[in-house]
Computed example of a mutant assay.
Amino acid sequence: MVKLADEVRVIDADTHLTERHDLFTTRAPKGYEDRLPRVVDIDGQPWWVVESDGRIGPARGGGVVNRDGDKFPFEESKNNGIDWVHRAAWDHEARLEYMDLNGFHAQVLYPNALGIGGQGISNNVQDPTLRRLTVEIFNDYLAELQDVSGERLLPMAIMPAWSVDECVREAKRAAAAGFRGVNMTSDPQETGAPDLAHRDWDALWEVCADLHLPVHFHIGASLTSLNFYGKYFWPSLHQNLKPAVGGGMLFLNNARVVINSIYAGIFDRHPRLKMVSVESGMGWIPFMMETADYEIMENAPQQAAELSRRPSEYFKDHWYATFWFEENGGDLQYMIDRVGEDNVMFETDFPHPTCLYPDPLTAVEERMTALRPETRRKVLGETAAKLYRL
């Protein structure tokens, strides 16, 4: 059997970083120590707060794997703190050790407490100067992680989604700092900015295309998508079943982002722009692309004529998907061929719920070995290496 890590540099396209409690306070300019996000005790529980009393959210461990390496259901672990969670969730040295142990050359990182798409800052920090400073400090910290890891840790820079101009500015700053992509909320209209179909965002798309910064949309990266998460399940279900329902539906919520981006004509105006649908799987993509073709002709034939191609034809040139558990009835190759073997990247979601743990490459070895060798190499690392310029 092929030893996956011996055949290719394996790149994990979706993992999560639990923010250190001192992340902002140790980097705060004079006068901002008590204004920037920090962790305080509220009724015996640690909370991320901003300014004097603005709550961002509980300061949780952000994972389902504990310090001893035991994995628990989400509902049984979600309220545990940073002292409980696996050290690799927040300590970059421990993360690199974990990667070495499990055969990963590199991992892409997304935040936790600040909002998976950075929406926690956009929606909870109101002062414009403090907003910008919070984003800059966080992204500077991420750049440090990438540098100190020798580009094995690849965080995606969060964007100040409340302002197109601020996003353009921060994307340029991120590119100069060596970032390999940006992390965007799917619903900037929540913060008072235009929605992503608005032409004002062309300024950001142009910069991202020119600077080779793929735009990443992680599931749960907006209040809108998280509200869906909390409403899909039937209330009387067992508490452990609720995140199973909500988590599954979050995958499909990213189909909303893909279809909107295509219908909005973004890729006709920016033919070199790349986007990534993160932690949403891939099995839904062929069906939703067929749906996009059918529905636009049924409901908006005039707008369909304004696109240069059928909606389904845009995906392979502009979008990437990540997956970790799908089997497609034992014929994974067929599914990858339908999505596009150059458009699929492997992920583990460590240390979040549903993550592949404790031995992620062994968990997928049988499925990966059944793929064509060139497909296997692309999915496990070559496509990500090309996208992220490794």
Rank of each mutant, 00 (worst) to 15 (best):
E7K: 07
V10I: 10
D12K: 04
D14E: 11
G31P: 03
V40W: 01
E51N: 15
R55G: 01
G61A: 00
G62C: 00
G63N: 02
G63D: 00
N66A: 01
K71L: 00
F74M: 13
D91N: 14
E97I: 06
E97Q: 13
Y98H: 10
H105A: 12
Q119N: 14
P128V: 12
T129E: 15
R131C: 14
E136L: 07
A143H: 10
E144K: 10
L145A: 02
W162Y: 13
V168N: 06
R169C: 03
A171M: 07
Q189P: 00
L204I: 09
E206G: 11
L211Y: 09
V215E: 05
H218L: 06
G220T: 09
S222E: 08
K231S: 15
F233D: 15
L241Y: 06
L241T: 11
P243K: 06
A244D: 08
G247S: 07
A264I: 03
P271M: 07
V276R: 05
V278Q: 03
I285S: 02
F287E: 11
M288C: 06
M297T: 05
E298Y: 06
L307K: 05
P311L: 14
F325M: 10
V339Q: 10
E341M: 04
D342E: 15
T348I: 02
T348L: 01
L356A: 10
E366V: 07
A370M: 08
R372C: 08
V379M: 02
K386H: 12
